[in-house]
Simulated scan of single mutants.
Amino acid sequence: MKLRPLHDRVVVRRVKEEEKSKGGIIIPDTAKEKPQEGIVVAVGKGARGDDNEIVPMDVKPKDRVLFGKWSGTEVTIDGEELLIMKESDIMGVLEK
């Protein structure tokens, strides 16, 4: 199934968190926090501005982004956990 977000919404797949700490300690699932980093899967066309023109999105699919801890709505599509959030919930794009 394919999901196309509407307006200024973005679909993000969380990046897997490390199973071990930098010191080599294995972190159990109950102690892990959900990562605040993800890969953009799909983007909407953009929000409508005051002049009724569509404002294009700053992010695009395959961008690696940072978002707030409580950002977005979790959904499961075809067994995969994804987040749907507004573009304004994204704090930045990570670049190499």
Rank of each mutant, 00 (worst) to 15 (best):
M1W: 05
M1I: 08
K2G: 09
L3C: 12
R4I: 03
R4V: 04
P5D: 10
H7W: 08
H7L: 04
H7M: 06
V10R: 05
V10I: 12
V10T: 07
V12T: 04
R13H: 05
R14E: 08
R14V: 11
V15L: 15
E17T: 12
E17P: 02
E17W: 09
E18P: 12
E19G: 00
K20M: 11
S21A: 04
K22W: 07
G23H: 11
I25A: 01
I27G: 00
I27W: 00
P28D: 06
D29Q: 14
D29C: 07
D29G: 08
T30E: 04
A31D: 15
E33L: 15
K34N: 13
K34I: 07
E37I: 11
G38E: 05
G38K: 14
G38H: 09
I39A: 10
I39Q: 09
I39S: 09
V41Y: 01
G44T: 07
G44I: 07
K45Q: 13
A47W: 03
R48L: 08
R48Q: 05
G49P: 00
D50L: 13
D51Q: 09
D51H: 06
N52K: 10
N52P: 00
E53D: 10
E53H: 10
V55W: 01
P56T: 08
M57Y: 05
D58H: 13
D58A: 14
D58V: 14
D58G: 15
V59E: 10
K60M: 12
K60T: 13
K60A: 11
K60N: 04
P61N: 02
P61R: 04
K62H: 15
R64H: 15
R64G: 07
R64C: 13
V65T: 13
L66W: 03
L66S: 03
G68L: 02
K69Y: 10
K69S: 14
W70K: 09
W70F: 03
S71W: 00
G72P: 08
G72I: 10
G72N: 06
T73K: 15
V75I: 15
V75N: 02
V75G: 03
T76C: 01
G79P: 01
E80C: 06
E81V: 07
L82G: 00
L82A: 00
L83D: 05
I84V: 15
M85E: 02
M85L: 14
K86E: 10
K86Q: 14
K86D: 09
K86G: 15
E87Y: 08
E87F: 11
E87P: 12
D89K: 03
I90F: 11
I90M: 13
G92V: 02
V93W: 06
V93S: 07
E95R: 15
K96F: 11
K96D: 05
